[in-house]
């Protein structure tokens, strides 16, 4: 397949030594294998995720994503915008929709952007990396690169919220999207078909401000993975990954559970299945080690 090029919005948490820097490492590895070129949007800024609303009004928040889109139009005019972070993707896509629906808001946004010497046409496609994999590459091609099938592993596909609602992936349902399960099967592992917490909320940003309420949600997400016989959880979202991975010990202390469930990204799975090293798959970024994947990567 010919090289595919995209205008890439990495987002704050993917930066060096940030909370999902391991996601970025595995995405880079996966993209190299699949001949996907990610051109970083020059000087991009934070999208304010879904939690900027206490300090920022509607227009300042829209301006944030508008600046990124305008920079992308300037630097990579012919390339779709691609984000790996669910919140980055959602905020950018929402901004695009809101500004397309409302000419006054678009004009106001452009007045603000002019202060930074920018102008937004707002005509680009805004896509999640998962869409690139499914729609531009395809499951069949994804499967062709597998060198080490992840045989014998049972994996719970935790889709979470923001890669799923309100936009979601074309052709998938909100209540039971199947794409992550299909990816699990593509790399030779077994998907937990009846994982009932697949699209449940982990608390998102409220894991910081309302830890007890959020950890009660996280507990159910992990418990359900155990109930379904999962060896690990896989997710497409940095917030889902962090929330379901790093609080397990606190949850154990509070609820008397014995959770030690690895939570990885789809890009981690693909990298390992593509025969890459543990380091290239960023397995060293797991707070809860994914030992079975380490073994396969080490073979």
């Amino acid at each position: 397949m010919a090289k595919k090029s995209y205008s890439f919005y990495p987002g704050c948490s993917s930066q060096k030594a940030a909370s999902s820097s391991n996601y970025q490492v595995s995405v880079d590895t996966m993209c190299k294998e699949l001949d996907i070129e990610l051109n970083e949007i020059p000087d991009w800024n934070c999208c304010s995720a879904s939690i900027g609303y206490a300090g920022g009004g509607e227009l300042p928040r829209l301006a944030l994503s508008a600046r990124n889109m305008a920079l992308s139009e300037e630097a990579h005019p012919d390339q779709d915008i691609v984000a790996t972070c669910a919140a980055c993707w959602l905020a950018t896509k929402e901004t695009q929709e809101r500004l397309n629906d409302n000419a006054d808001l678009l004009a106001e946004t452009n007045t603000a952007l002019a202060e930074a010497g920018l102008k937004l046409k707002n005509e680009k496609k805004v896509r999640h990396m998962v869409e690139v994999l499914i729609e531009d590459i395809g499951y069949e091609e994804l499967g062709k690169h597998v060198k080490k099938p992840l045989e014998g592993l049972k994996i719970a596909g935790y889709v979470g919220c923001q890669t799923n609602r309100p936009f979601g992936i074309a052709g998938e349902s909100f209540e039971n999207p199947k794409y992550l399960d299909k990816m699990i099967e593509t790399v030779g592992a077994e998907a937990c078909d009846n994982y009932e917490k697949k699209v449940s909320c982990c608390g998102g940003a409220l894991a910081f401000s309302e830890p007890e309420k959020s950890q009660a949600l996280i507990k159910e997400i992990i418990e359900s993975a155990y109930d379904n016989g999962a060896d690990m959880i896989v997710t497409p979202c940095p917030v889902c990954q962090m929330n379901t991975e790093v609080y397990q010990e606190q949850i154990n202390a509070k609820y008397g559970t014995k959770f030690k469930m690895p939570v990885v990204y789809y890009s981690t799975l693909l990298s390992v299945a593509y025969g890459k090293s543990a380091k290239e798959a960023a397995l060293d970024g797991q707070v809860i080690r994914a030992k079975q994947l380490e073994e396969i990567a080490g073979k």
Binding site: I51, C161, Q162, R165, P166, C201
Partner: peptide
């Protein structure tokens, strides 16, 4: 939590 369940 911005889970968008209500919107969906």
């Amino acid at each position: 939590t911005s889970c968008y369940n209500c919107i969906a």
